[in-house]
Design a protein around this nucleic acid. Structure first.
Lengths: 217, 217
DNA sequence: GTCTATAGAGGGATAGAC
DNA sequence: GTCTATCCCTCTATAGAC
């Protein structure tokens, strides 16, 4: 019952999250995790049961709040709109902002998790599917409905694809922001995630609002 | 000198590529690779020297042709345009089409590599940086120049970000197309990569062309 | 160039003392 | 709940026969 902020469990979770994001889930050993958390090796198996269970717990700790935040922001905007469809920009906002908002989660730097989520998107899907498949699907369905109302010219299917693209761009951008220098050799300016997300917003709004077909030239 | 299409080396490369894309580089053992390639375990070390060297070879085999194809298409379009700036749609095409064109590479199914490239983007950067940092940077610089000419209203920095976003969306979409069902619970229609890339095109064109700031209205 | 056999390192998990 | 010590497994890499 003692929910100290730095209990052994929490320290393991944060250390694991950080190392997973840095070098991947598979290559991170329990020995490395417990060393960073300054906790005994056996503690992982005592508190979580196995490495797999620890991985699930790492995802679980962040995904719940992220989903809730997205839905909450969408709810509030829809209430304020009183029946009228939201703008595409508002929907993008409700989807994107909570990711930056992860900063306020336990373990201080929640953006680490965003990087993890993107870096191991496929691996993540495997764990997420077991844990919160329905919750995640509900979120996506809500956004799909809102977006369909904002873009009546597009088919349901097209709206689904656009949502997919938004999620893809957002997560990949977060995961690879530190590699921008590699991407084009530009001097860099220490591009941080928050700047990247800010720059991404108009790109997403315009992309979502695009006509279904675009002629060449 | 005997460049048979199914030499031991090539079979190892293709098997490794496939398994890497399916379950990741770190979790794929040489035993699994050699079993799929129906080759002896020791063959990897004989032909490549180490697992790391094999990984590099897997990336090297595809990235060279991909970069060349992108530049070639851009070159051709620019020649035809005779000095006038290309359209954004044309630039998107030169960037995106060669990825689907990987199909014509050795080992038949080159799209497997696209999935690998996206799934392990961070890991890949590590190897790619060693192998073809300058080549990749040249490609991105060429596209940046072309895009800047097509979008004179945007700053150099903004154009760099947009290029980043395009690459991010493209690679993540390819990597996660098979997970669309998970994304929103839709019935799926066996969404293949080619369809995804086709749907992505107008999204990218509009996103790249967006004004730098979008009001929240 | 291909194979078998094995060395040597590092991993996850657990038993049992405290 | 924490720690040490250890089991047992899988992995990469290599030596040496063919």
């Amino acid at each position: 019952m003692k929910s100290l902020l730095s209990s052994t469990k929490e320290r393991i979770l944060s250390a694991a999250e950080q190392l997973f994001a840095e070098t991947g889930v598979a290559t991170t050993s329990l020995r490395t995790i417990t060393a960073l958390a300054r906790v005994n090796l056996a503690a992982v198996n005592y508190h979580f049961g196995s490495k797999d269970a620890l991985i699930e717990a790492v995802y679980e700790r962040r995904l719940g709040p992220l989903n809730k935040a997205r839905l909450a922001q969408l709810d509030q905007l829809e209430q304020e709109a009183a029946g009228k469809p939201l703008s595409v920009a508002q929907i993008v906002d409700a989807f994107v902002s909570p990711v930056a908002g992860l900063t306020r989660e336990p373990g201080k730097n929640g953006l680490v998790f965003s990087k993890l989520l993107a870096q191991t998107y496929n691996e993540a899907a495997q764990y997420v599917q077991r844990l919160m498949a329905t919750e995640h699907q509900n979120v996506m369905r809500r956004f799909k409905t809102a977006l369909a109302a904002a873009l009546p010219a597009l088919s349901e299917e097209e709206v689904g694809w656009r949502l997919h693209f938004m999620s893809a761009a957002l997560h990949h951008v977060i995961a690879n922001t530190s590699y921008m220098q590699w991407l084009d050799g530009s001097e860099g300016s220490e591009a941080d995630v928050r700047t990247a997300v800010e720059k991404l917003r108009p790109f997403l709004v315009a992309g979502l609002s695009a006509p279904a077909h675009t002629a060449l030239s």
